[in-house]
Design a binder for these strands. Structure first.
Length: 428
DNA sequence: TCTGGGGTCCTAGGACCC
DNA sequence: TCTGGGGTCCTAGGACCC
């Protein structure tokens, strides 16, 4: 297989969630900031200042001292804001290349073929435009494969010499950089693969690149073999400027208080199934398979543990709230192991996963389709009311109103809330 | 002395990503 | 006390079939 000479750019926003927060609050600039996950459970984004002493994914309760000592501002996440800023960034990028793949909320691959010698200048202009028009700082990596573009982007972020744009189309520059990048930083090398490779004495991106393909497959799977090829400049991961049909979707939540009665669990399952059906309808999809699961806290191995998961075929395929809720609660009941004596299990997480998704219009015709105009009108009314008056204006009675299962953010003790909000803020 | 072989489909679980 | 949520892809192994 041949090395590619077609340049792919990866443009990645710096500390995206943090940068979004700083757009609207100048007092956050220059101070260490972290953004917390949904439940205020762990740090999912860090400013440069915070990266010095807080690791990605650190649980908040373990870093509370560090937060206090360094005057870190800890913010709950605001996904609506990040989604909107992301859309604006993508809009700007689109004016710089017709061929673009939005890879995640803060990264896009851009096809730079046809720019010749001007590709670096073009990338720099693109970066300036995003900065000027949205306020978000970015870095760009350019290389012949996606994996190398990711690597280039990493170098652009780490080494100020690149001034935000690292071009690895040149073999010598690429080799220089790859000899200095540890394998753990490579896109597709997680902790398990990192450990296996290190055991074989492979520590740098350059060493992994030089691994024989067959050995790559032996140590890992075909995935690692492809990764080695990508590091050699042979593209194995397609450029997807048309987003493929999504295969599944999920609604899962941790419970603020462990769920010890079936009633409470059923309320949570009802809420998640309701939301899952809403998501399906929003995307114009129906699902053919639904999986219900719930489990106790896996971080507490000394307590009674139980994990339940069951998949159900939905026939006909459906996006009706009632179909999903009924099936989900019935399935959940079959796995229930709680007992009223007080020795029951405390379930800390529950969720609904939908698979075999299909556009509503492509649904196979049934010989005897169920006649349910009433259900359809009901869900239409439900969506209309919740659209107009806000989420959860109308819910199934079964979901209940106590929401004892809801996440900590909704059910946090007053003191805890106070402590988070009283974290010191340094004003410039 | 000694239980067929080969194909497909499905699912659970692992690994990885942001 | 307190550890996110939502995705994708791959593989091994069981069920089933002829």
């Amino acid at each position: 297989m041949e090395q590619s000479d077609r340049p792919i750019a990866l443009i990645d926003c710096n500390n995206f969630y943090v940068s979004c927060e700083r757009l609207f609050d100048v007092s956050l600039r220059g101070v260490p900031i972290i953004v917390l996950s949904n439940n205020d459970g762990c740090a999912v984004a860090r400013s440069e200042e915070a990266k010095q002493f807080i690791k990605m994914g650190d649980p908040v309760f373990k870093i509370r001292d560090l937060i206090k000592r360094h005057g870190v501002v800890a913010l709950s996440s605001n996904y609506t804001l990040y989604g909107d800023v992301s859309r604006r960034v993508t809009e700007v990028l689109h004016s710089y290349s017709p061929r673009l793949e939005t890879y995640s909320i803060d990264e896009s691959f851009v096809d730079l073929s046809g720019f010749g010698d001007r590709m670096e200048a073009h990338a720099a202009r693109m970066r300036d435009a995003v900065r000027t028009e949205t306020g978000i700082p970015t870095c760009v990596g350019i290389a012949p494969t996606k994996t190398l573009a990711k690597l280039a982007n990493y170098a652009a972020k780490k080494n100020p010499l690149f001034s935000g744009v690292c071009n690895l189309m040149d073999q010598d520059v690429r080799d220089y950089v790859m000899r200095r990048i540890p394998i753990g930083e490579i896109w597709g090398v997680g902790s398990a693969t990192e450990a296996k490779l290190k055991a074989q004495g492979i520590n740098s991106a350059a060493e992994l690149r030089d691994l024989p393909l067959a050995l790559g497959r032996k140590i890992g799977t075909v995935v690692l073999e492809r990764l080695v090829a990508e590091l050699r400049g042979i593209p194995c991961i397609d450029f997807e400027d048309v987003p493929p049909q999504r295969k599944g979707m999920a609604v899962t939540r941790s419970a603020g208080t462990p769920m010890t009665t079936f009633d409470v669990l059923a309320q949570a399952i009802t809420a998640h199934a309701t939301r899952a059906a809403e998501k399906l309808r929003q995307h114009g999809l129906v699902a053919g398979t639904m999986t219900v699961f719930y489990h106790t806290n896996p971080h507490k191995p000394d307590r009674p543990r139980h994990s339940f998961s069951r998949s159900i075929r939905l026939r006909p395929m459906s996006n009706h709230t009632f179909d999903l809720v009924d099936a989900a609660v019935a399935a959940a009941r079959r796995g229930w192991k709680g007992d009223p004596s007080g020795n029951g299990y405390g379930y800390t997480k529950a969720g609904i996963i939908l698979d075999d998704l299909l556009a509503e219009a492509d649904q196979p015709a049934m010989l005897f389709p169920p006649d349910r105009p009433r259900d359809a009108r009901l869900t239409d009314a439900l969506d209309a009311i919740n659209d107009r008056f806000g989420k959860k204006t109308m819910v199934l009675a079964r979901e209940g109103v106590s929401r004892t299962w809801a996440t900590k953010a909704d059910h946090r003790s007053p003191r805890y809330t106070t402590r988070i909000s009283e974290l010191p803020v340094i004003q410039l």
